Amino acid sequence: MADRMTPMQPCIVCHDIAISRGGRTIWSEGTFTIPRGSATAIVGTNGAGKTTLMKAELGLIPLSHGTMTVLGKPAGEMNAHIGYVPQSYASDIDSSLTAEQSVLLGLTGTRFGFHIISKKERDKAREAMEFVGVLDKAPYRLSQLSGGLRQRVAIAQALVSDPELLMLDEPLANLDLASQRSTVHILAKLNRELGMTIQVVAHDLNMLLPILTGAVYLLDGHPHFAKLNEVLDSKLLTHLYGTQVQVVTTPQGDMFVTPNADNIGCNDHPDMHSSSDVAQFHHHEDVRMDDDHAHIDRKGNGQ
């Protein structure tokens, strides 16, 4: 993959943005700047408009008010420099395709009709697959792969064109713990080793905490951006999720977000990992990448 180390310049700049659909305002009064090289989550309750914000950044949904630039241009104009992994990838993609054919769509998907795959295109696809650890699955049909492996194929497809910004909509949804860990480690490599800007729509912050630098949170009908240490506030998260939440720091310095102990056994069911799950993720031990596992050293770098 190409090295994309860049200064902390603006990646996304929003000024007083708002979106309305069907005569209803989804959210409004959004003014914030997300720097390049950051790893940012978009968080909020169901229906708050998280995916809507990401689609607006891609120029797929028009703003009803305000201005937005992405990679220095109006939203939608720099999409060739953006990798996007939709939440619906697993259901939308033709499961009869091989993993390699799927990744190649990241280079050829906008063309119509039959065309010959060049050696350069095939080499780029294989490079992306090797980076995410699925090169050995190249000839397998997607229907033969687990959900975790399909997710890594989806990321490879988004990476094949060397994007400056990688957007992922709920990339950890419906994955088991090992597959979630593998996905997060891939994102960590992209962000820390290549300087790629990462943006993730997420319900659960816990698994992403080790890589996040900030978050856009959709609260009371308005999008806000803040650095991660400002977002990890019990009062803010309680207001955001509508249930009592506490931010816990372990003796090792790891942090996780958990329902307040006073609420255990009540009818609240926040979409969050348990502290034991998060502890497994933060535990700095090597894991081998086979099927849904990534081999990671103590610094979080892929082997």
Score class of each variant (00 low, 15 high):
Ile198Lys: 06
Asn206Leu: 10
Gly265Glu: 10
Tyr241Ala: 08
Pro62Ala: 11
Asp271Pro: 00
Ser179Leu: 07
Asn263His: 10
Pro210Leu: 11
Gln280Cys: 04
Gln151Arg: 08
Leu135Ala: 14
Cys11Gln: 04
His284Leu: 10
Asp220Met: 11
Ser179Phe: 06
Asp16Met: 08
Met207Gln: 12
Leu149Glu: 07
Gly133Cys: 12
Leu60Gly: 02
His224Val: 07
Asn79Ala: 08
Gly66Asp: 03
Lys55Ser: 05
Met8Ile: 09
Leu71Arg: 02
Pro223Gln: 11
Pro74Trp: 04
Glu193Gly: 00
Asn191Arg: 04
Ser276Ala: 14
Arg141Lys: 14
Ser118Trp: 15
Leu236Tyr: 15
Asp268Tyr: 14
Ala188Gln: 08
Met54Asn: 01
Gly302Gln: 05
His283Asp: 08
Leu208Ser: 09
Ala294Met: 09
Ile116Leu: 14
Gly148Ile: 03
Glu57Pro: 00
Gly44Thr: 03
Leu105Arg: 09
Glu170Arg: 07
Gly47Phe: 07
Ser96Tyr: 15
Val245Leu: 15
Arg122Cys: 12
Phe256Lys: 01
Thr52Ile: 10
Gly30Pro: 00
Ala128Ile: 11
Leu177Ser: 07
Pro223Val: 07
Ser64Val: 03
Val278Ser: 03
Asn301Ala: 06
Pro86Ala: 07
Leu107Ile: 14
Leu135Met: 12
Asp3Ser: 11
Met196Arg: 09
Asp220Asn: 15
Glu170Cys: 13
Ser143Trp: 02
Pro171Gln: 11
Cys266Gln: 13
Arg288Gly: 06
Ser275Phe: 07
Gly76Trp: 01
Gly221Gln: 10
Ala173Gly: 09
Asp233Ile: 14
His224Gly: 10
Asp290Val: 13
Arg111Ala: 14
Gly59Ser: 06
Met167Gln: 02
Asp290Gly: 03
His185Glu: 10
Asp169Phe: 06
Gln157His: 02
Ser182His: 14
Phe225Gln: 00
Leu212Gln: 04
Lys235Asp: 15
Val85Lys: 01
Leu228Tyr: 11
Thr250Met: 06
Met54Gln: 01
Ile82Pro: 00
Met68Gln: 09
Pro10Thr: 10
Asp277Leu: 09
Arg192Phe: 10
Cys11Met: 15
Thr25Tyr: 05
Val257Asn: 07
Val245Ser: 02
